[in-house]
Design a protein around this nucleic acid. Structure first.
Lengths: 232, 232
DNA sequence: ATAGTTGGTGATCAGGCGATAAACAATCAT
DNA sequence: ATGATTGTTTATCGCCTGATCACCAACTAT
């Protein structure tokens, strides 16, 4: 049993402040759990941290508490207050605002770390996930719908309708799933993310204008005034 | 310890053929794993089946083998050969074919069972998931692109381009994620699935026509002939 | 130098896991 | 009815898990 020489081994890493060390643990735990899932063992995690397993329990009362901190950092980290202003800044063309927003947004969430934690949490049925979806709807999608309505000359009658919001979800999801395919399924995707976003926006904006504006040009598909689809 | 009366208790359920019983096990295991994840215990599973845990090992050599059978049934079950024909049947309007296809397709995969297994498998990094994505691309998306090209009068020059295929993914994902929100995240969605699909298709088809057809009408957004987006 | 506080480890516990073996119960062929 | 065969359970094994406790090492203040 080679238990000796603990001095030298640890002498290299300088002593961090307790808070910093804690944060370091959370950061590495995030990486670990995003790979192994939340059923990953505390011993494996500790090994990855270069410490022994009981030490975790000095910093966190239980594994669940550690996991909760992981959630918090992952979910709260990305949201940039500037995005709301960007989306509603009518001094710039809508197309340009959306392109810039989706590039910035996907720069943040299109990581293996973020996406995997997101789905692990979702499959667990945690509230935090529904909360996040609500935030996306409030801060992003309903703004986008409002701006689209303005763009095509529709009245700004308060909240977006449910079909409009759902259509914004279709756009959002179409872009979002590019990241899922790439980072969760390791599936090949169009290399140029910018181009994917650009095309998605072009199709969405032209389509939205013709489908949702009552006074739109001769729509290619038959749509009643209510937005309900006339099937064949 | 009440160990007696095993006769009566089991007398009710008639004896099934071995194969049927096996299938019943797989079916209920699918349900179980879709809820608990594949880390769910074999004892819990057995309790759900109304039998004891060791019995599972008479029907399946190991837990992993059982899981593989679960995958097989879930992934192979849905694919309907008729869908390819439906998508390419040019005697009917494209809009109508797509609406019918996506309604049928989502009728099959929009279940808590299917979607959750799909993501559990995906997070594990299993090949079967990449395989499925490839199938979707070959059997569904490239057909859709071909049909769209035909619809807008573009030449049928073999395979779809990468940007076109990616655009089809945006449509597919936009629709697919409706099910994810509803059945995985238990999040409220537009009640009328048919309407969601209809609107998504309307926007996509009108948008696609104007964005991807070189000779399209006056597109609202600036797009070079290559499909690459001109930013601002 | 010494006492006190904090950072970290080794040993260990109770419980749950997947899996196995031996015994019992029920059915079937004759 | 009897023996063979299949279906099912009880008991158990070795391993791994999250968590705890007593102890050791290191830095800080005096």
């Amino acid at each position: 049993m080679n238990k000796a020489v603990p001095k030298r081994a640890r002498a290299k890493q300088k002593r961090l402040s307790p808070d910093d060390r804690r944060r370091e643990f959370v950061a590495k735990a995030t990486e670990f759990f995003s790979e192994e899932g939340f059923d990953g063992g505390t011993r494996d995690l500790a090994r990855r941290l270069g410490v022994t397993q009981p030490l975790l329990y000095r910093y966190f009362p239980s594994k669940d508490d550690l996991i909760k901190e992981v959630y918090r950092t992952v979910y709260l980290e990305p949201f940039d207050a500037g995005w709301e202003k960007l989306l509603t800044d009518r001094t710039r063309p809508l197309r340009e605002r959306l392109q810039e927003f989706y590039q910035a947004y996907t720069d943040v969430i299109f990581t293996r770390r973020w996406l995997r934690i997101y789905f692990y949490a979702g499959l667990k049925g945690l509230d935090i996930n529904r909360w996040y979806i609500g935030v996306v709807e409030d801060k992003i999608l309903s703004r986008i719908v409002s701006e689209c309505r303005h763009e095509v000359g529709l009245p700004q009658q308060g909240k977006p309708t449910a079909p409009e919001l759902e259509m914004a979800w279709v756009l959002q999801s179409g872009i979002f799933y590019y990241g899922v395919r790439k980072y969760i399924f390791d599936s090949p995707v169009l290399e140029d993310k910018r181009q994917m976003i650009g095309n998605a926006l072009n199709v969405f904006l032209t389509g939205f204008a013709q489908v949702f504006s009552a006074a739109g040009g001769p729509a290619r598909a038959t749509v009643k005034a209510t937005g309900r689809v006339a099937l064949a």
